[in-house]
Structures are given as structure tokens and as C-alpha cells.
Design a binder for these strands. Structure first.
Length: 519
RNA sequence: GGCGCAUUGGUGUAGUUGGUUAACACGCCGCCCUCUCAAGGCGGAGACCACGGGUUCGAGUCCCGUAUGCGCUACCA
């Protein structure tokens, strides 16, 4: 049977990076196995689900490059009737029962505490059985009659008193759980008979023909309940693969409430990350390809091996797909490292590095459209960049991309190359312009000298500037650094003669003169 | 409280029939290069493989226990 997997987010917020990784692994597995990748929106919690969340999740997946679902999106809320039918079938077959116990109110906030307390008292009062429900063995006819009389009921699965369930998890191995540990879980709520999560998931997965369930480790223990439902329904149990959780620094839970936007995928899109870089990073969180970075590879083999091994964590999508396997997924949780108090480290170091690596090494033709999109949203784009200035634009981007980390840098630090209204970095002005008062006179003189340079090439400009420095008895470095700040507003940047060439004669001269006022 | 899962330098990981000096990437530090900053090259600090017991000639790798973290335990998903 060919592989069919699904990503099943609940639309109660933006796409969490942990969820994004789950989606990615499902996608990778489907593509590797030549199977189908499906999407199911689990919107059964009507109060918390929003259309906006659904849209945001879809957008996030599309951005990541894994929005190519192989079949139509399934909305779980539309299948409620099927879920209900399945549960009632189990009641008829004696595998589930109606529970006429009045519904107890519970405050959502204290559930955890309540659970612990209940468990404690249950442990103290000798072995309060999970099978003590008085309605568990109510004859079907009586159950039917009471239901027909309009008495409200919930439907519970009849979990066998003895024995255990087991399944083999592709990641965590053999899993076993005694039935005595599992209560008769509720399938349908009393009153409106709306289906609960465990039922919905199983019925939908059966309906969709899912062969492999790949999801977060937080579902590992509950999988036993689902196995029980599969068996009651007489359906084949799929293969399960649970993914280790992604944690915050200190091994704490990575939560939207505490950590804010850092856990949202859209943050990375909005802050100038490349989908391929983010995807690459995400793939390596909880999974690693076999052998790619062993010591052997790094030290032996042919000429380029050392360099190859160094960059071996930069993995093209085709290789990711090619090498992906459930067996290489780790069991221990991964920490997503960041420091909320440090702007330079607002997100994981390696992610930032990886993004920069992609920006400076990816084919220029692939980078250009991304920069264009960034420029369009920053109001820097001009039609001529795609026409008569096309070559200049490509050359300039290629020049400055070397030291940029995100797409935002092109419109931020790189603004001076494309607009005149750039800002001067104060530290740069202090360091390169205010440092030497003679620059007040030197800069305009240099401007004049450069205006005469013909042709305007890197070599000619360098020659002219160095000659000028010699004549004036100053170090070329003084003029070079001052020029850098004058032309770009920055203290750092590409080799200055490249900058001159790209900025052009007119603009260079104008900016040199203007900068004299800043000295 | 019960049940489950995990534990290799700061972080991500390699280490898969137990065998010598625990490897790679990011980050950090230094040097080289140099007009700055990156990149690149070279080098360095940083892990008694959570802790304690075993098994073995030999354990990061096997077994038991402890601790810590996380998850589940709901008429939430």
C-alpha cells in the first residue's frame, strides 16, 4: 500500500515552529516514499478555531514550500456526523456504552490540578477501578429506552478490563500500556453528542486512508487509546512515528504565551528569512542524515572533502528528501536556542548563520526575485532594475549579499545603494569622519579628483584615490574609510572600490561633498 | 499521585555486532588575509558522554537504581 500521510493542525493560532516541523517531516516522508501528503484542519473546537488561523497556517506551509497537498483539504468539523455514526455503531455492537451520569462542570484553568487530586484520592481509596461506571453494563434495550426518553448521555468506549495494547512506534520503538491504566474514554459529549478528539482523529484517519501517522511526541501516550478505537472499529492500525518535542532554552516548553512571536513561523518570513534556509534548519531539529558528518568524511577522501564536510549541514531539498527516513529521527527533545534579551541572538544562532549562508551562496538568479519582493514592500523597487539597470542591480546585490543575514538587510543596511535618503550610522560617522578634521577639506577635493576619472572602473578609481592620498601625504585608508561612511552611511561594507564603481561617479562625488559637513 | 519518554561540550548532532587520544556544525577566542566588516584559511578553549551501582579483559554504547526535564493522565486538541 502506498504511503499516505497527513498534517493535522488545529487552527487555534498561528503556525508554531514545532507544528511546522511536523508538517515538514510528513511532507519529506511522503515525497521520499512517493506517497501522498494530505492536510486536515482539526477545527472541532469551535470556540477557539478561527478562519484567520487556518489562513495563516496555510500561508505558512506555502511559504515553507510544502503547500502542495495532494488532495483537497479536509475540514474535520464537517465530518462530525461520520464520527457520531461510528460511535453509535460501537454502542450497538456493545463496544461502547451510553453514560447517563450528569455532566460535571469543570473549570478549564485547574484541570491539571484536578487530575492530580483525583488520582491521589483514587490511589488512597483502594483501587477505584476505571470500570466502575454503573452504566457500563446497562442492557442495550434499557439504554436505548432512556435515550429515546430524552435523557442526556455521553458515549464512552468500553475498554477491556484485562490485558494491554501495544504498537510499534517508528521512532520510540515498542510501546505497551496496560488497559487498567486507561479509563473508558468519552467518545461523544453528553448533550449535543459532539465527537471528541480521539474519536475524530481515528475516524478521519481511517476515512482518509492514512498509512503513517507522524506527529508530536505529546500524543505518544494517548496513542494507546486510539489503537483501542481502531480495533473496536475493526480497522487496520496505521504505523505511528512520534517526533521529539522542540523546547525553549532551559528545557522548558516553547509556548506562544511566554515566548511570543519567536515560535511563530510567520515571524521568520516577515523578518527576511529564506524558506529554504528555514526548512533546512528545521529538518535538522530532531533528525539527521546518516553518516554525512562523520569524522571519516571530514578527514579522508578526495581533495574537497574538508570543505564539503564543513558545509555539510547545508542540505539541498533534493538531498533532504533523498535521505529522509523515520528511523533517523531522534528520541530526545531538541532545544531551540535563543536569548530574548539579546537582539543579536533573538533567535537560534545556527538559523541566523544558515540564512546568511543561503543568502551569500545561493544562485543569484534565485535570490534576485526575493530581494525584489523585499524592495517592493520597502518602497525601494524601481522598474529599471528589471530593464536597463538589470545588470547593475544584479551586480550590486551580488556585491552586498556577502555580509548580509536576512532579506531585510538589503533594504536596511543596503539602502544607500538604491536610494539617497539613507541614514548615517552614528558610530560610523564618529569613527570614520569626525576622527580627522582634515577630511573636511580632503573629501570635496577627492570628489573633484574622482569626477575626472575616466573610465569609471574599479582599477581607475583605486589608482586615482591612491595617487591623491600620496599627494596629500595621508594614508589611503583614511580616505577609503571616510568614503565608505560618506557613500553608504556605514562603517562596514564591501571593498571600497567596488562600492565606488557600483554607486557611480555622480553619486559618489555628491556624497563625498555632502559628508564634509558631517566632519 | 500514577503511567510514559528522554539525558553526549553553551546549542544542534555523529557515534547503530561494547574495543585504543569522543567527531562534525553553530557560537566563542586568537592568528593570517586586509581599506572596514564579513567571507575564507589556520589554530584554540569548551564534554570525566546527568549521577550511582553493576555485567565485562574492556561501556557513551548492555542491565538496575537515583536525579532532573518533558509529556500524558479532560465530556481540550
Amino acid at each position: 500500500m502506498s504511503v499516505r500521510v497527513r498534517f493535522a493542525p488545529s487552527p487555534t493560532g498561528y503556525l508554531h515552529i514545532g507544528a511546522a516541523r511536523t508538517a515538514l517531516f510528513n511532507w519529506l516522508y511522503a515525497r521520499k516514499e512517493g506517497g501522498k501528503f494530505l492536510l486536515r484542519v482539526e477545527d472541532t473546537d469551535l470556540q477557539r478555531s478561527t478562519e484567520e488561523s487556518t489562513r495563516s497556517i496555510l500561508e505558512g506551509l506555502a511559504w515553507l514550500g510544502i503547500g502542495d497537498y495532494d488532495e483537497e483539504i479536509v475540514f474535520q468539523s464537517r465530518n462530525a456526523d461520520k464520527h457520531r455514526e461510528a460511535a453509535m455503531r460501537l454502542v450497538r455492537e456493545g463496544k461502547a456504552y451510553r453514560d447517563f451520569t450528569p455532566k460535571g462542570e469543570r473549570s478549564d484553568a485547574n484541570v491539571k490540578q484536578e487530575i492530580a487530586e483525583r488520582a491521589r484520592t483514587a490511589a488512597a481509596g483502594e483501587g477505584a477501578s476505571h470500570r466502575a461506571n454503573p452504566f457500563r453494563d446497562l442492557p442495550l434495550e434499557e439504554s436505548d429506552r432512556r435515550a429515546a426518553d430524552g435523557e442526556p448521555f455521553a458515549v464512552r468506549l468500553k475498554v477491556p478490563a484485562e490485558g494491554q495494547t501495544h504498537f510499534t512506534d517508528a521512532v520510540y520503538g515498542e510501546q505497551e500500556r496496560a488497559h487498567s491504566e486507561i479509563e473508558d474514554l468519552v467518545l461523544l459529549r453528553s448533550g449535543d453528542l459532539s465527537p471528541l478528539y480521539n474519536l475524530s482523529v481515528v475516524v478521519d484517519d481511517i476515512e482518509m486512508g492514512i498509512t503513517d501517522v507522524i506527529r508530536g511526541q505529546d500524543h505518544l501516550t494517548n496513542t494507546h487509546k486510539q489503537v483501542l478505537i481502531y480495533e473496536a472499529l475493526g480497522a487496520a492500525v496505521p504505523r505511528f512515528a512520534h517526533l521529539p518535542l522542540i523546547l525553549a532554552p532551559g528545557g522548558k516548553k516553547l509556548s506562544k504565551r511566554i515566548h511570543g512571536e519567536i515560535v511563530s513561523l510567520t515571524t521568520y518570513r516577515d523578518r527576511g528569512f529564506l524558506p529554504e534556509a528555514f526548512r533546512n534548519f528545521l529538518a535538522l531539529l530532531g533528525w539527521s542524515p546518516a553518516g554525512l558528518q562523520s569524522a571519516e568524511d571530514a578527514t579522508h577522501g578526495n581533495e574537497q572533502t574538508a570543505a564539503d564536510a564543513r558545509g555539510s549541514e547545508i542540505i539541498p531539498l533534493s538531498d533532504l528528501i533523498e535521505n529522509f527516513s523515520l528511523e533517523r529521527i531522534h528520541r530526545s527533545p531538541a532545544i531551540f536556542n535563543f536569548d530574548a534579551n539579546n537582539p543579536k541572538r533573538w533567535t537560534d544562532d545556527k538559523l541566523i548563520w544558515m540564512n546568511a549562508e543561503y543568502i551569500r551562496t545561493m544562485p543569484l538568479e534565485e535570490l534576485l526575485p526575493l530581494v525584489r519582493a523585499e524592495f517592493e514592500s520597502a518602497g525601494l523597487w524601481r522598474a529599471e532594475y528589471d530593464a536597463e539597470r538589470r545588470e547593475w542591480f544584479a551586480r550590486t546585490i551580488n556585491l552586498i549579499r556577502e555580509r548580509f543575514y536576512t532579506l531585510k538587510d538589503f533594504s536596511g543596511q543596503g539602502r544607500a545603494y538604491f536610494a539617497d535618503d539613507f541614514e548615517f550610522d552614528e558610530a560610523a560617522v564618529r569613527k570614520n569622519l569626525k576622527k580627522d578634521a582634515s577630511l573636511r577639506e580632503l573629501l570635496p577635493a577627492l570628489a573633484e579628483r574622482l569626477e575626472a576619472v575616466e573610465p569609471w572602473t574599479l582599477e581607475a578609481v583605486e589608482q586615482a584615490l591612491r595617487d591623491f592620498a600620496d599627494e596629500r601625504g595621508v594614508k589611503a585608508g583614511l580616505l577609503i574609510n571616510a568614503s565608505r561612511t560618506a557613500l553608504t552611511g556605514q562603517a562596514v561594507g564591501p571593498s571600497m572600490f567596488d562600492v565606488f564603481e557600483v554607486v557611480g561617479r555622480e553619486r559618489s562625488a555628491r556624497r563625498l561633498r555632502a559628508a564634509a559637513a558631517l566632519v
